[in-house]
Design a protein around this nucleic acid. Sequence first.
DNA 1: CCTACCGATCGGTAGG
DNA 2: CCTACCGATCGGTAGG
Lengths: 223, 223
Amino acid sequence: MTEALHDEDGSRWAGQGAGLPQKQQAVDAPTISAAALRLFAERGYRATTMSDIGAAIGIRGPSLYRHVTSKQVLLGGIMVDTMRALIADQRAALDAGGDVSLQLRRIVEAHVRYHAAHREQAFVGNREIENLEQPYRDEVLRLRRTYERGLRTVIERGCAEGDFTVAEPRLASYAILDMGMGVSAWFRPDGPHGAEQIAYTYADHAIRMLTGRSSEGATTADA
Amino acid sequence: MTEALHDEDGSRWAGQGAGLPQKQQAVDAPTISAAALRLFAERGYRATTMSDIGAAIGIRGPSLYRHVTSKQVLLGGIMVDTMRALIADQRAALDAGGDVSLQLRRIVEAHVRYHAAHREQAFVGNREIENLEQPYRDEVLRLRRTYERGLRTVIERGCAEGDFTVAEPRLASYAILDMGMGVSAWFRPDGPHGAEQIAYTYADHAIRMLTGRSSEGATTADA
DNA sequence: CCTACCGATCGGTAGG
DNA sequence: CCTACCGATCGGTAGG
């Protein structure tokens, strides 16, 4: 316990002190990132200290720097990984084939499923953009544009083929993406609705939004 | 310039120093709150310092305490005012009468219009909840529940009267509120779409979502 | 409304 | 992986 040990890069340190680790788990970069994600989601990036992250895995704040470069790199990794996962899921939905209506359903289901099943990633990814520094920030914004374009392209194709009837595909894509992103803010694993049910229902919402008869009710626009 | 003056509560101070005010505007609580709102929206609550807010209106950070109690009270006031304005707009939409479909359209238009026309308020209101302390936090959460219930009640009435056909009114209300809230994140006054156009289009989206024939396309749910 | 300053916090480094 | 600590930041107060 107090004997000198070799750490990963061969230097020596004097021991582990008397503090009891909170949880006996492997301390590596993915473990740290997972703890950081949970804390960033719960209390926000700026309100989370390196000491908090360390405590969550049973070590002191400074010891984290053995495994990770900085707090900012932790955030950047989380956000870039999140966008890559979303894009991969979207691509898989597109590659599954089917007509444009089925493709749209699969894209929306994948989108909503991710925001429910990985609500912390999605929530942090949506809220902490202004705390993200370069080069992560531009990279994440670029990936977000790619992701939006994927959905919009399907909507536009559906309009061209006569299946969809929206005047502004971009506004429709924003509406669909935003309603799905909202799921990450209120979804609870132990809540009354399961992720699959929500994904299915939201895909219904999207299909209806894109296929309804145009200007349905009376108009207003007075106030 | 260097002569002693009386300030608002009768005490004396020695002068204004040599700093040039950035803008010659009245310094009062509403002016400070407006500057704080702009900065909170741009860089976030925690990233905004009292010195930043002061500089935006040409005074030093400590001088703000002549007019406001604390940074937290600034945030609380902004967020409570925002929710009250949203609820007032929703109530006005309901009081305008009409059938359930028209009421729904008015509610959604008011919701989206606010999130475009007052995008900074709405954006801050949605992002800084975890930075809000008591009693503001509970008050804002209470107002949000009231607001959601207002929309959901109309959806439920529409279902009872046969105009709407959603299985889960709560999920539909979340979807509609979240897509409108998203507007506050991407709307730009000089962008290609005006606030009124977006409000009208989103009300169309909502009406379609609520009135489409049920389960339209093929189903998926494999992945 | 200002300057000076207190007290607390925090990311990251030194050195073992 | 630890303790000790640096340097910087920041909300708020003192006192004029």
